[in-house]
Amino acid sequence: MDLTKYPQYQLYLLTLKLMNLKNHLIPENCDERCINSTIINRAYFSSYLLSKLWLEDIKKFKTIPPWNFGDDKPISEHKQIRQALYNFGEKKMKTELSRLSSLRKKADYNPFTEITHEELSAAIFHMENIFNNLKFD
Rank of each mutant, 00 (worst) to 15 (best):
N23I: 00
P27Y: 00
P27C: 01
E28S: 10
E28M: 05
C30W: 10
D31L: 07
S37Y: 01
T38Q: 04
N41Y: 06
Y44S: 05
F45N: 01
F45I: 00
S46W: 01
S47Y: 00
Y48N: 03
Y48E: 06
L49N: 14
W54H: 11
D57I: 00
K59L: 08
K62Y: 05
I64E: 14
I64L: 10
P65V: 06
W67P: 05
W67T: 08
G70P: 10
D71E: 15
D72H: 14
D72P: 01
K73P: 01
K73L: 14
P74H: 07
S76I: 07
H78V: 06
K79M: 08
K79R: 13
L85W: 08
L85Y: 07
Y86D: 11
F88E: 15
F88Q: 15
G89L: 14
K91V: 10
M93Y: 07
K94R: 14
K94V: 03
T95E: 15
E96V: 03
L97G: 11
L97E: 11
R99Q: 11
S101P: 15
S102N: 13
L103K: 11
R104D: 08
D108Y: 11
Y109H: 15
Y109R: 15
N110M: 02
N110S: 10
P111H: 07
F112M: 07
F112W: 09
T113M: 08
T113I: 02
E114L: 08
E114P: 12
I115S: 10
T116W: 10
T116R: 09
L120K: 04
A122K: 06
I124Q: 06
I124H: 07
H126K: 05
I130S: 01
N132S: 02
N132T: 02
N133Q: 13
L134C: 10
